[in-house]
Design a protein around this nucleic acid. Structure first.
Lengths: 360, 360
DNA sequence: GCTGGCACTCTCGAACCTCGAGTGCTAATA
DNA sequence: TATTAGCACTCGAGGTTCGAGAGTGCCAGC
């Protein structure tokens, strides 16, 4: 059953006013802030109906109205004007993203920090890589007791490790190890590196010093590391600025929940369908998030890798602004990272991302 | 002017009771918890004197006594029994440190997390590296459009970067670049890499494609990165469990202050004199820390590098337990990292592995 | 169907009260 | 002289009362 045009306008006005002030909204206020030419008495009737339909509720008999989760949902789905970011904001985001791109390995936490400072809510960032394999090994001979392992991964990241040996090794041995590892350890997953494989490799290169084991365990560790999604939360302190968290017990409960990376991974399972996804209050699975809202956006990190940025706040959240900002960040990141081969990041390439998400 | 034996006992009792309960301590309670054979009236007289000496204060006329910062200072300096950790606690710390040592590049944040979870206060960790230089460049030729830069640093860490080119490059060019960079860019600090040097290098290798610039800017970025101290704060949410931060405005102020890494660096300047350093309330320089306390311990990371771990909490902090735990962590870390001999962490082979895993 | 009017309801804050913990002082005691 | 018991006093925490104000629901009239 759809809502009449006037009901929609009134509901939107209540939600927006409540988002702004965090105070229950009365009929008089609505009459003043909207341009429907009718009196507060009429609005009262409409408000009563909206309440009986489940979109609004009253904290107590003689207070104004507050949106229910269902009310927010209606607002987000149908009433909300997708906010247009100003040119300055768009440029600001693009500029700071260009900066963050320089340190790719800190990308996840940096992007989270950016989202948090832009929205003024705690933000989380998660990057769930697809299973990667090693594409290529290089062993750099430094001196008789030292060499560097360099492994290039299928996702175009490169890992390295410096190895010091208590014994001397010849350059020829390093050479042999390199070609054997390139032959036997590339393009395979972690579980394919069995003790059996290591032992047979050891025999093949005539290795009596356990070098094979060192390189193999390095391979195992980077493969397993590349599988575990990175997750972090930034700006948790901003939660305390929200009046709904004036109760320290509540704030503590939510912050503790969020500061456990385990819990963040749960969010990773949520599908954003390419765009921004909003989870309002009880729509969240986790008990601790039941009276907060989460806005998520996923971005393409290239090669099937999906990254996720999200923002947590009270259900009274500025969905429109947050969604617009996250969406822009996500699209800007996708453009920079996605599309197959990662462009040489940071240097001279200046990609401009349009901030207009008004279409749709 | 020294305190009489009885006054010391009473002051210690007040501090400890207040630390335990967060409630002002009355004369009756002191009489019960200490074994001085005297009545509450006598204690009252002593308390009044301790108050007039500045060690205690009364929140209001008819309340118990609360230690002043000066009182805590006296307690920490002279009265506190240096807590002995139980064997289990010691082992627990050693065990989890061994685990953390596997991921050297996350050491800083991991150690912070350990300190925080052990003490139940927010913890910070800072590592200030000594200036490092690049000892050696290797360029790995992948294909006509791709190569990897590998740079070995004077502090034995290794950095790398994958470079994609829009144009083709021959293996000979890579070779030439490699030897020129090894000749001109090793053992120098960041500011010695001038535009002039880059231009002359460019001419020397006959580089028309800006490759020199790419490698040089990589060198600059890893040199500057190696100079900036890493700092992070963990477990900020634990602050909210403390009754003194029941006021969300206070909690917010402190948390915002702490979440800015800039501010953490200020702490780095503080000298711990090899052991644990306690800063009580107004002894802190930063305005925001004026009614909190900070406990710091520094550890030796080897090669002149100093790391710092610290804990923040209300002035009513369990100094004895916190100091004992931080001190143990710091000593354990010094043992593992400092003094040149780093024991092989984790891996079950007899080779000594140093270095870290970097992603670029 | 909309509006103004009106009685009603409920919260919030101020003012007030009481209870109890803890003090400071004094006079008696070892 | 140091300690103690006794007692009057102080002050905050927590409960109660009360009036003001905001907002509602309903009704009769337009």
């Amino acid at each position: 059953m759809g809502l009449s045009g006037r009901k929609k306008k009134i509901l939107a006005a209540v939600v927006e006013e409540y988002i702004r002030t965090a105070e229950p909204v009365g009929s008089k206020t609505v009459a003043q802030t909207t341009d429907l030419g009718c009196s507060s008495a009429t609005i009262r009737n409409e408000l009563a109906e909206l309440a009986s339909m489940g979109y609004l509720e009253q904290p107590h008999t003689s207070a104004g109205r507050v949106p229910t989760p269902q009310g927010y949902r209606m607002y987000v789905n149908e009433l909300m004007q997708r906010q247009k970011l100003s040119l300055e904001e768009t440029e600001e985001i693009n500029r700071s993203l260009n900066e963050k791109m320089r340190e790719l390995d800190k990308l996840v936490s940096n992007v989270g920090a950016l989202a948090s400072s832009l929205t003024n809510y705690p933000a989380m960032a998660i990057a769930a890589p697809p299973p990667a394999t090693i594409k290529r090994f290089d062993l750099i001979y430094i001196d008789a007791n030292t060499f560097i392992i360099v492994a290039m991964m299928s996702n175009n990241s490169v890992k390295n490790k410096l190895v010091h040996l208590p014994v001397s090794v010849g350059q020829d041995m390093i050479q042999r190890l390199s070609s054997v590892f390139n032959a036997n350890f590339t393009d395979i997953t972690e579980e394919r590196i069995t003790p059996l494989l290591i032992r047979s490799t050891e025999r093949a290169v005539d290795d009596t010093m356990g070098l094979t084991g060192v390189i193999a365990s390095f391979a195992i560790s980077i493969l397993s590391e590349s599988q575990t999604a990175e997750a972090c939360i930034t700006g948790a302190n901003r939660l305390l600025a929200q009046p709904e968290f004036r109760d320290p017990a509540k704030a503590h409960a939510l912050m503790s929940y969020l500061s456990d990376a385990e819990h963040l991974h749960d969010l990773d399972a949520i599908d954003c369908g390419g765009d921004v996804r909003v989870l309002i209050g009880p729509e969240n699975v986790a008990e601790e998030l039941r009276d907060s809202s989460v806005v998520l956006a996923s971005y393409d990190m290239g090669g099937d890798t999906k990254g996720l940025i999200g923002v947590v706040g009270p259900t009274r959240m500025d969905y429109s602004a947050v969604a617009a900002k996250l969406s822009l960040i996500a699209r800007a990141l996708s453009e920079r990272l996605g599309g197959g081969i990662a462009p040489p990041p940071g240097l001279d390439n200046k990609l401009i991302i349009k901030g207009d998400i008004n279409e749709q």
